[in-house]
Design a protein around this nucleic acid. Sequence first.
DNA 1: ACACGGAACCAAAACGTTTTGCAAAGGAAG
DNA 2: CTTCCTTTGCAAAACGTTTTGGTTCCGTGT
Lengths: 340, 340
Amino acid sequence: MTTRVGIREVAKAAGVSVTTVSHALNDATSSRVKAETQQHVRDVAKNLGYAPNRLASGLRNQRSQILGLVSDEITTTPFAGAMIRGAQDAAYERGYVVMVVNSGLDSELEHREITMLQQHQVDGVVYARLYHQGVELPPALAGIPTVLLDAVTGDPTVSSIVPDEVDAAETAVEALIRAGHTRIGMINNVDDIPATHGRLEGFHNALRRHGIQHDPRHLVIAEPETSGGREAALALLSRPDPPTALFCFSDRMAMGAYQAATALGLNIPDDVSIVGIDNLELISDSLWPGLTTVALPHYDMGRWAVNRVLDDIENPGRPPEQVRLECPLVERGSVGPPRA
Amino acid sequence: MTTRVGIREVAKAAGVSVTTVSHALNDATSSRVKAETQQHVRDVAKNLGYAPNRLASGLRNQRSQILGLVSDEITTTPFAGAMIRGAQDAAYERGYVVMVVNSGLDSELEHREITMLQQHQVDGVVYARLYHQGVELPPALAGIPTVLLDAVTGDPTVSSIVPDEVDAAETAVEALIRAGHTRIGMINNVDDIPATHGRLEGFHNALRRHGIQHDPRHLVIAEPETSGGREAALALLSRPDPPTALFCFSDRMAMGAYQAATALGLNIPDDVSIVGIDNLELISDSLWPGLTTVALPHYDMGRWAVNRVLDDIENPGRPPEQVRLECPLVERGSVGPPRA
DNA sequence: ACACGGAACCAAAACGTTTTGCAAAGGAAG
DNA sequence: CTTCCTTTGCAAAACGTTTTGGTTCCGTGT
């Protein structure tokens, strides 16, 4: 390990003082150093492979250039990866770096991990959940600029971003209506979470907007698993007046609907059209035909969250905002016109 | 933002010098401070909510307590999340924290990101890929303790961990043999990567060990997508002497095999048994019946990698090792006895 | 000739720790 | 009463930056 080259080495090599080096490197518009010397210093620094020690500069200016990302779980779904990547990309573009920490459900552990982030003097924190839910901000975060990602809280002073569940559902259902469907069934989640209520509302909105009368027997709720979707779809499609299209709460439930259709000898999309929500490519791309679905924009939410917290850090005072992000439709092959 | 409490505040509150506070807090066995004072100082520190500034201590002892995790992509699969979580858990247990950075395929970007990690004085780096492959270590990492995760390199001086592809395949195939199958087909990946060769070798090993003659026409290679698996399985199962069981390169290809079986009116596992590799729960748990598969231990590899790099940092000199980790079988419902 | 101002640069302090070298106090041995 | 440890404590230096407050030098107006 060759001894790291510091600012003094650069100063010596360039024949100037460390002060001048610092100014030459940091001040874009160098009022303190002649343009010529500035260029010279920069050349020397580059040649020496000088890389400033951020511990030192962080200590000096009380700015670590580090962001913390605390999330509840990083598992089964690829959502967490997408969020992290979005956060990391946005941070990188602005010269920051992100420390990832995850605590499962253990709030004791979470507290200790936040303490750890604090010790590293993170400039801000993105507090993330991996599915849309209401949370309370841990008290340990008081005093640190924080924004919520895929979560909301009662406190109107903290910024947050979540997917627009209502809009997402409307988008999905509109796709079915556009294809000509009027007898549309919905398979909803049994859990009492924002997505459940929002998507149901969006479903009704879309139908109402198009003057479609909804048969309440075409709404069934089930466990948010493939098996739940399968059984619900089985029930719906076995009715005397089955829906010609199914709007499923999630891609996994949609996968269950595929299984039900296959079991009943129904062709997708000729006999029944299906849409989901999530755009879990692992599923939606793998099904046959591909699943038309609405994408949950985790990558973009990650980007937004760090950009927002960086704005708060770099020029504070902007009023907080609670954003609901629109979700794009991803068309594959599971939607077609209803059988005549 | 209440002004942070520093070591001087603690010293003043406890009525001792900062030196004493430092010793009281850091030296487990305090030769410099009386046990009684030590306890007193610790109490005061806790009451004040003192949290040491790691920028300062890192600067002082040339140890940032930060690890870098550089990975190529964090996308579609949940693997990245599992690796990160494993890495983060292991790091936390030893008082470290991890900075995540990902560079896609852009090696220019990768270089700048590694530079950034260096500026933050990371004590070590885990260089990760999200599927097993050969890599060259970026020169920027020279001089930083580094271990490879899900990747290998020609250099025998760097430690690495990858899944044991051969063993994984053997495990999968053994499960089929154990159920009584002898006519076993394999659907392999067309790509020239370690997994392709290793799993083929494991397939042959298992057959040979049980004295099973392999019909080379029961081996087909395809694109590692669901569609590839579907078409390959369609071809195999339509033969005059179809295999009674299919060993698929991946869970996604296995999903394709499910689709083929369904299309041919074959029941799983009664008419044909199927095993995969990956344990992508999103798929293997969602299929019907559940897919028996071999898990790729990304979480454990993440743990191992950071433990190894921390060992290298904390007491250097241990000879490097290239580890191949065994992969456990996860039994669900896709394997049964061959039809009599 | 003199004061004044601006340009270019530098020395030193500060950020919050850890650790080395030293000092004071107390006790035991001579 | 010295002398010499041992115990306990402290002051100060160091880590690598940034930035404040100069200082030097030179040119210009009076």
